[in-house]
Design a protein around this nucleic acid. Sequence first.
DNA 1: TGCTTTTTGTTCATCGTTGTACAATAATGT
DNA 2: ACATTATTGTACAACGATGAACAAAAAGCA
Lengths: 161, 161
Amino acid sequence: MNKKQVPITHHHFPWDHPRFRSWIAVARACQLMQQTLTRALAELDIKPPHLDILVNLYRFEGITQQELARKLLVGRSNMSMLLPQLEKRGLIERRGDEKDKRVLRLSLTESGRALSEQAMEIQTAIIDKSMEDSPIEECMIVAQAMERLVGILLKDAGDPD
Amino acid sequence: MNKKQVPITHHHFPWDHPRFRSWIAVARACQLMQQTLTRALAELDIKPPHLDILVNLYRFEGITQQELARKLLVGRSNMSMLLPQLEKRGLIERRGDEKDKRVLRLSLTESGRALSEQAMEIQTAIIDKSMEDSPIEECMIVAQAMERLVGILLKDAGDPD
DNA sequence: TGCTTTTTGTTCATCGTTGTACAATAATGT
DNA sequence: ACATTATTGTACAACGATGAACAAAAAGCA
């Protein structure tokens, strides 16, 4: 068994680990997708953060800023900066809650809903094209792996913010 | 076959598309990983962008700022902002090339290499933990899907800096 | 050679994100 | 009821990322 003593590299570089390489690919994909989406949304004069907001207001009408920030994994202050912009453009409305005078309930306006639909079409087109070479089952595996990852990280972080 | 005429929703919402849902999971995972990594790297007083730079200098000694920016999918100006910081901290060196007086060749210093190794250990630990529930084969599938995606997006974008 | 175009890095203004500190309101405990 | 603690949204300073404009050097072309 002298074959056992392979030339020990002793220093395992990260890029030799399969999981590490996987993650690097994920990070690169994410970055590129963000840039591509930014360029594509330019014609609607919005950016990815705005789209994230619009999509969530589309799904969850009457949500509060706090809940929205939690869904988007950003801080409350972030919403305090972005939402007034969208409000000034007439895309969303912020109405104070009757029972809890602290919170502002958010909803899309007519034009906001229309713009959301256009933007979502753009985004969906890009995603579909980017993943057209991957069969659905593989996409599901990707989704599962990423959701497990999110679960682990959220548990460890204790959901700070 | 009257079962064929399912109640047509006619409006297919993005979140009904498997690929869309997959991508949303990827984006969330990326965002959370970024935040987790930021917190973990705080003890070394660096941030994810700095780590990306260090890792690439670790692998590709003597690279230029342009090449580095291209690998990181960021603009040249970004490197012009970050690299002087790392140079002042004595983590990297920038030497002018003899033959081409435009370019600056980058390399790690002793302490820069040491810090890089510490940082890469931290990152690898987080990644390993986040993906420990996903078997290696699934990680490979994820990597392949993401690399295909990057290929498609890069081709379409024409690699505009 | 001399002129134009391209490449490389810098500078600057702008914008999104973050964390902290803060004010207003609600919930809790005594 | 009153005081204390938590929660919700805002204001602000700091920082990273971007794109455009710029100077210097190289490459291409007449």
